[in-house]
Nucleic acid binder design. Structure first.
Length: 849
RNA sequence: GGGCGCGUAGCUCAGCGGGAGAGCGCUCGCCUCACACGCGAGAGGUCGCAGGUUCAAAACCUGCCGCGCCCACCA
């Protein structure tokens, strides 16, 4: 036995991480069949900055499950990826290097990126699309190394030979293949349609990436002139869109306005004749009950525009400014084109906010603004990463059908086993609230391109209705570099030639395929058959509507099945103010700093004590408790294994009773773990362990040293070792480093490949024993200690007499405890008084001077 | 506006039909030959509020109040 004189936690992480990697402890054995495999669809963290404290929580949870099932004999498929593609990375690269992507520039294969690596440079150096993509790849590769180091410190038992990136070749191939198949079977389509648009990033965004933010705005009460005299009053928070107004709308049953429906009114300033129409969505209680329909102020406008068959007069441009249009031309008829053009010229080029103020002034001057604008707070839609409100802009985009699959998706949601179950409500409410198909194209650069080209007609106009697609064997392709079959490179962007689709996919277009990418879908059909559908999707709750939803959708459309059977939802880490731990705070408290300060086992202990689904307070105190537990395990192990007496048969009733009690813990902890309640499994184990060291060790210590002969010592040492062996394995998923360290002192191989304990491991005695003797012994010991504490004497202080008043049944147990108690309490004599009460009276010996 | 979750000792939480609990913190002790990075003991709570069901409610039902989150068409 190799046991250090003074055991310590220092350096355990580096030592065992290296050993695990070298011995392939967590390597996936792909010879196992699907039934023998437990597969986890690990979240690929976004590589656009640093890990934060929340990651320590949400990545520890699946690791606990992985280690539990691995020890139970399943082969665990536990891959990990890095989500590097997407807008957050582009933004980070732009800020980090001071560059911007200019797709009009030619690619420079010899570009000197080293010259750029001056963080903080504010210059906007233009880079070609491919150079920009290469630069993104360089930075994310650095981040990925740092992420891996932190996760390995945390002891995630992933197979580090099995990693992927979402911009990598396998991910691009899988994403493009999935897209082509969706296109082929009609689940994907492109359309020129109004979509939510971020004017800063200049890209379409999907419903899932939109969030409401409460903003200040102004209600403007505005008069529209009726052509037969009189006015109609409307209220709007967006008067700058009056030039884009195509109609007014009222509710069909709103008697105030019934007579108006069918008439026309003139828009103020622009003098455009627009109809007053009726539609169910008009809310009589909002504003005046008359709404202005613009192309497009919001998504309701889109509905009205479509359902009422209105024309489009768009003034909002893709950069968020008001464009120049010419009134008087077809589609832009006005009763006074000159005035209309003059009015538009006043606001052209302005962004929405400025134009709003300007047009309010103009309306005021013309007498169409009624009263003062009323300041209000109202929800405004933003892209989740954006800073300016979204606009509705009409453009050509790719969509994946979701609306028509709603019933199937709800059914899939109900087939999933959710941990905790109530999280399913979030999935359901999201699916039920879907109002648009998934807009999956982005007008960005660092992502997976759509693998399609378009024929150009003689005028050079693309034929979007019949895209040219590559054979799947060519994937992945870049349509802006690669050439479709039957064409030559010279025909690119030439009339009669072809053009590549310039867009990339929503980052979720790739992330929604993590089970397929990690599982080797099509690239490695053999592997895929052994891991898919997977067992567990661990994730946090705020991405149920994105990652979880899209993954279920893709799996349904491609495989007609769920991608996994179980979902485990981790909560958030809250700072002491009960707010979600913010990025800035997360940067002050870095994961690596925490791991170094408290030790990985301690951080894992904190994470493990949080149940799935519930948010958790960031609590370094709890990490200190975890560290104390790990140190206690070291010391208790050293004590147990340092006993000189040889272990023998467990014969003493106290020893058998302790093992029986531990058997109960094994059963309950196993059940809890199997039900994804890791926190309960830890709690049960920890509770037993502390009582084990405080009471059991104290009770048998002297006997184990040989105070009552060889047989008594042999029984105690055997029981101690058996208990230690089982406790170490129960602790192993939570505290992988300290348990591996102790295991290495006296056992072969890794504890993380050892068998998860079963009640049978506690020996035959447990079959007919129970914890009664052990519990009673602890109770008496506590009573004696209490007396000493109250008398403020040492726990070694001699006790002259202990009188135990109790029922005959319980007193009978003393037969098995008396000798051990006398040693543990330094007692001269124990007297038993039969009765009905349960009490212990202790008489201390006089203190010797 | 709809939905979900949570309100138990100063803090973090467990308990979810019959004893109000744990850890931390606090107080008081103890160098006891595994551990002073330790050990022992103690104080501390009308279990958010109000009704109801029950022999019995922290736990079940109803209604409030508070907190957090998810969803919802910006007039």
């Amino acid at each position: 036995m190799q046991m250090p004189e003074k055991p310590s936690l220092d350096g355990l992480e580096a030592k065992w991480d290296a050993w695990w990697q070298a011995s392939g402890t967590y390597r996936f054995d792909r010879s196992k069949t699907r039934e023998q495999v437990y597969a986890i669809d690990t979240p690929p963290p976004t590589v656009s900055g640093s890990l934060h404290v929340g990651h320590m929580l949400s990545y520890t949870h699946p690791d606990l499950v992985a280690r539990f099932h691995r020890m139970r004999g399943l082969e665990v498929f536990y891959p990990i990826g890095w989500d590097d593609n997407g807008l957050p990375t582009e933004r980070r690269v732009q800020n980090y290097f001071g560059v911007r992507c200019d797709p009009s520039l030619p690619y420079d294969p010899a570009y000197d990126y080293a010259a750029l690596e001056r963080p903080g440079d504010g210059d906007q150096i233009p880079l070609s699309r491919l150079n920009f993509i290469e630069l993104c790849g360089r930075l994310t590769a650095e981040d990925e190394k740092a992420f891996e180091a932190t996760f390995r410190f945390l002891a995630l038992s992933v197979d580090w030979d099995h990693t992927y990136t979402t911009i990598g070749e396998r991910s691009r191939r899988a994403s493009q293949r999935a897209f082509l198949r969706l296109l082929a079977n009609g689940h994907a389509y492109s359309a020129e349609a109004p979509t939510m648009w971020d004017v800063d990033f200049r890209t379409a965004v999907a419903q899932a990436e939109i969030e409401d933010r409460d903003q200040e705005g102004q209600y403007h009460r505005i008069a529209f002139d009726r052509e037969d005299g009189g006015i109609v009053e409307i209220e709007t928070s967006r008067p700058e869109l009056i030039p884009a107004c195509v109609a007014l709308v009222v509710h069909p049953t709103d008697e105030r306005y019934t007579a108006l429906v069918g008439s026309t009114v003139l828009t103020p300033l622009f003098r455009v004749s627009v109809p007053v129409m009726a539609h169910e969505l008009a809310a009589p209680e909002k504003g005046t009950g008359v709404a202005m329909i613009c192309t497009f102020g919001d998504v309701t406008d889109v509905t009205w525009w479509r359902e009422l068959g209105l024309p489009a007069r768009v003034v909002m441009q893709k950069d968020g400014s008001i464009g120049k249009k010419i009134f008087g031309e077809p589609g832009w008829e006005s009763r006074d084109p000159e005035a209309a053009n003059a009015a538009l010229a006043e606001i052209a080029g302005m962004y929405a906010k400025k134009a709003r103020k300007k047009i309010a002034e103009m309306l005021s001057a013309s007498g169409h603004l009624l009263g003062e604008p009323q300041t209000i707070r109202h929800p405004v839609k933003f892209y989740e990463n954006g800073t300016r409100p979204l606009e509705v802009i009409s453009s050509r985009q790719w969509f994946v059908r979701t609306l028509q699959h709603r019933p199937d998706l709800l059914k899939r949601g109900s087939e999933l086993t959710w941990h905790p179950p109530y999280m399913r409500a979030r999935f359901d409410s999201w699916v039920e609230g879907l109002n648009a198909d998934w807009c999956v194209s982005r007008q960005r650069f660092f992502g997976v391109p759509f693998p399609v080209w378009y024929r150009l007609d003689a005028n050079g106009d693309p034929d979007h209705d019949a895209p040219l697609v590559p054979d799947e064997s060519r994937l992945p392709i870049d349509p802006l570099s690669d050439v479709p079959d039957g064409f030559t490179a010279e025909q690119r962007d030439q009339p009669g030639g072809f053009a590549g689709d310039p867009d990339i996919m929503d980052t979720w277009g790739t992330s929604s395929l993590t089970p397929q990418i990690a599982g080797g879908w099509e690239d490695d059909a053999d592997l895929f058959s052994r891991v898919f559908p997977m067992d567990l999707r661990p994730q946090s709750h705020e991405i149920i509507r994105t990652w979880l939803f899209y993954t279920v959708l893709k799996s349904e459309l491609e495989h007609g099945s769920l991608p996994w059977t179980d979902v485990g939802i981790s909560g958030w880490v809250l700072d002491p103010d009960r707010k979600k731990m913010s990025k800035s705070k997360g940067n002050v408290v870095t994961p690596l700093g925490l791991l170094e300060q408290h030790g990985a086992d301690a951080v894992r202990y904190w994470a493990s004590s949080a149940r799935l689904g519930s948010d958790t307070a960031f609590d370094e105190q709890q990490m200190k408790v975890g560290r104390k537990l790990a140190i206690k395990i070291l010391n208790a192990s050293r004590f147990t294994l340092g006993m000189e007496a040889a272990p023998g048969e467990v014969t003493e009733p106290l020893d058998l009773s302790m093992l029986a009690a531990l058997g109960e813990v094994v059963t309950e902890a196993t059940d809890a773990f199997a039900a994804y309640d890791h926190a309960r499994a830890l709690d049960l184990t920890e509770r037993f362990f502390w009582a084990f060291t405080d009471d059991y060790l104290e009770l048998v210590k002297q006997r184990a040293y040989g105070a009552h002969g060889e047989a008594g010592a042999a029984s105690a040492v055997a029981a101690l070792r058996t208990a230690l062996d089982v406790l170490l394995r129960l602790f192993a998923p939570f505290l992988p480093y300290v348990t591996e360290e102790v295991w290495s002192w006296w056992r072969e191989g890794s504890i993380h490949r050892a068998t998860w304990p079963r009640p049978d491991d506690l020996g035959p005695g447990t079959a007919h024993g129970d914890g009664t003797v052990y519990a009673f012994g602890a109770e008496i010991l506590t009573a004696i200690r209490k007396e000493k504490a109250l008398k403020k004497v040492s726990l070694r202080a001699a006790v002259e007499l202990v009188t135990i008043n109790d029922t005959p049944d319980r007193l009978a147990l003393m037969e098995h405890l008396e000798r051990d108690l006398i040693e543990a309490g330094n007692i001269t004599r124990i007297e038993r008084v039969p009765g009905s009460r349960s009490s212990v009276v202790t008489v201390l010996a006089p203190v010797e001077s």
